[in-house]
């Protein structure tokens, strides 16, 4: 084999070896998402009057009652929200009715009744702010069963309206 031939064979072998780390190519895509800020309204706790006895009024205080109802709202920090209720005057069990003497409510920006701002839920719209992105609305009331109130499950509809701006 001539010298030039040896040189060429060596060069070809070297080039073949370099093929192992041959060629890199790139391609791109994007990862993407569209984030939407939600609002949330949920029933955090049920208004629970517990055992109710005929002829004995039973009250649950919104601002202090352990069994007060609670609604948990979230929204934009600082934003205004209007809260109103559609409330029944009576509960019904078949043809029997049980009067609801009064409703009361309060709201707070933390999930704690202490220091909450009172309002009358049956009186119209209450305005509040999401100071830290949350609002907790507590609801209580008084039921006034008659002395001969028949036993049974008494039910009524309660509607919470929350208007965002």
């Amino acid at each position: 084999m001539s010298n030039s031939m040896k040189y060429a064979v060596a060069l070809a072998a070297a080039m073949s070896l370099t093929a192992v780390s041959a060629e890199a190519q790139s391609g791109n895509i994007n990862a993407k998402a569209t984030v939407l800020a939600p609002i949330t309204i949920a029933q955090g706790a049920e208004l629970d009057f517990g055992n109710v006895l005929p002829g004995v009024n039973k009250s649950v205080a919104a601002a202090s009652g352990a069994t007060a109802g609670r609604f948990d709202l979230t929204g934009v920090t600082g934003a205004n929200v209007n809260v109103s209720f559609t409330l029944p005057a009576n509960l019904a069990s078949g043809a029997n009715t049980l009067p609801i003497g009064s409703w009361d409510g309060c709201h707070n920006t933390i999930a704690n009744q202490a220091g909450c701002t009172g309002f009358t839920p049956s009186a119209g719209t209450t305005s509040a702010n999401f100071v830290a992105g949350a609002l907790y609305v507590y609801v209580g009331g008084t039921v006034s069963p008659a002395g001969l109130q028949p036993a049974g499950l008494y039910q009524a509809n309660v509607t919470l309206n929350a208007a965002y701006f």
Binding site: E46, G50, L98, A151, Q155, V158, F165
Partner: peptide, 30 residues
Amino acid sequence: SAKGGAAPAGEADSDGISIGFNIEIRSILP
């Protein structure tokens, strides 16, 4: 408007008076 499941009932026994509310929540959005 969102309505949950069945109305919750109080803890009275079958001889007593129990109370439950059907809750509806309405979110009003621009």
